[in-house]
Design a protein around this nucleic acid. Structure first.
Lengths: 223, 223
DNA sequence: CGCGCTTGTGTGACTAGATCACCGATAGGC
DNA sequence: GCCTATCGGTGATCTAGTCACACAAGCGCG
């Protein structure tokens, strides 16, 4: 991305914020703070609520639910151009969430303090719409997760996951990681992958999955 | 709808709204509309987004996720004193939700049009807090549902459900309804209940479950 | 190099839950 | 009292989660 010529140009990377009135843009740029979080940073977690609302400029944040037996499910990922609104929910949470947010890659973000956030919501329709739209999007994501877990077959979900997260036909992930993504046990993933392999859809080696037959996987994922 | 003794007194039934400035109270009372919805009314559904935000004065609204195969899971219930904020998410939703809200009993509510809602959010800190707190609460509920579905055993969840929803030791519900609540199949519920009965924890008859041994159920539900 | 350690993967046996195909029981309308 | 819709019970079968353990691949180190 080219170095911004004007102060606060990062704002325009957010869908819905480009039309902000100058006054609001000023508040946003002057009272937020750009920050860089190394990969693996825990942004929020049970008992650790964040002080700031993050608007992601680059990188991705993974939000996952933790079960007491050590198992996990990935709830959603926030990527550049999105906000981590759940954060606001956490900021206000009268109750601790059993979820945590982790920087999955290095992340750069604009951090907006709670009070400034409130101020912005009060003074700008566009910002309000931005915020509520973000909430709506997250809700939708959560609903999909629920639907998946409750109603969809593992093989289908796994095929989707692989197609989703593979880059150039290759997915770097251990069976255990995929299991955590889908909220299931490692063995289940191992067996499903063995079956995919048997059908010639993928090739496996320690920590990586290579897609051999995209169409085969896709056919399963759709149906 | 019963005429309130003093204009706007219903506002005080909502935790967090009682401290509103008079000016805001006036907007709320004058620009909202009290309404009565008969039991079974569909408040929102896929393809049917509501125009109003509802603040529930009495009755309960059940919000459930619909799976394409006809199965369901109950996401949460909103009761008197709560708002149906998801509604606002739906109002703004750029995407249809596969969820629906249904009046589970007769419901009375104050309906706030979308524009007035925006106005209130803009002009009152208390109202903003009220709204975000409501969002936060719903998120928490959704997280619990995800955790339950993904990690908890059916027998435990069923025992909890029975304890939760029984009134005076009796629960009026069919096996099919309980199955829908928990996002499972009717047969599973039937078999579990048969087991509970065998252990002397409950007695069953068509459409009703009677709790005989509260402690027994509770012990399972906790563990 | 061989050694031990950690992490990732494979497998069998078993339990829980979901699905399918039924059939019998019950209540309510007529 | 009979008909019919709804409710509940049951066996067979399949998918998924759990447990216990064994084997394999990488990795540091003497």
């Amino acid at each position: 991305m080219p170095a911004p010529a004007t102060q606060g140009s990062w704002i325009d990377r957010f869908e819905g914020l480009s039309g902000l009135e100058p006054r609001i843009r000023d508040i946003l740029t002057s009272r937020s703070q750009l920050m860089r979080l190394p990969k693996g940073t825990v942004i929020f977690a049970p008992g650790k609520s964040p002080e700031n609302l993050l608007l992601l400029l680059s990188g991705t944040v993974r939000v996952q639910q933790l079960g007491e037996n050590g198992r996990e499910v990935v709830l959603y990922r926030a990527t550049a151009g999105e906000s981590c609104v759940l954060t606001t929910a956490c900021m206000l949470a009268y109750e601790d969430l059993a979820a945590e947010g982790i920087a999955e890659t290095e992340v750069t973000a604009a951090a907006i303090p709670r009070t400034v956030f409130d101020d912005l919501v009060a003074s700008s329709v566009e910002f309000r719409n931005f915020v509520f739209r973000a909430y709506s999007r997250r809700m939708t994501d959560l609903f999909r997760v629920i639907e998946d877990i409750a109603f969809r077959r593992m093989d289908i979900r796994l095929a989707q996951k692989i197609l989703d997260r593979a880059e150039a036909g290759v997915l770097k992930a251990t069976h255990a990681q995929l299991a955590a993504e889908l909220g299931t046990a490692r063995e289940v993933i191992s067996r499903q992958l063995a079956e995919f392999q048997r059908r010639g859809w993928i090739a496996q080696s320690r920590g990586t999955i290579e897609i051999l037959d995209d169409a085969g996987l896709r056919k399963l994922a759709e149906g």
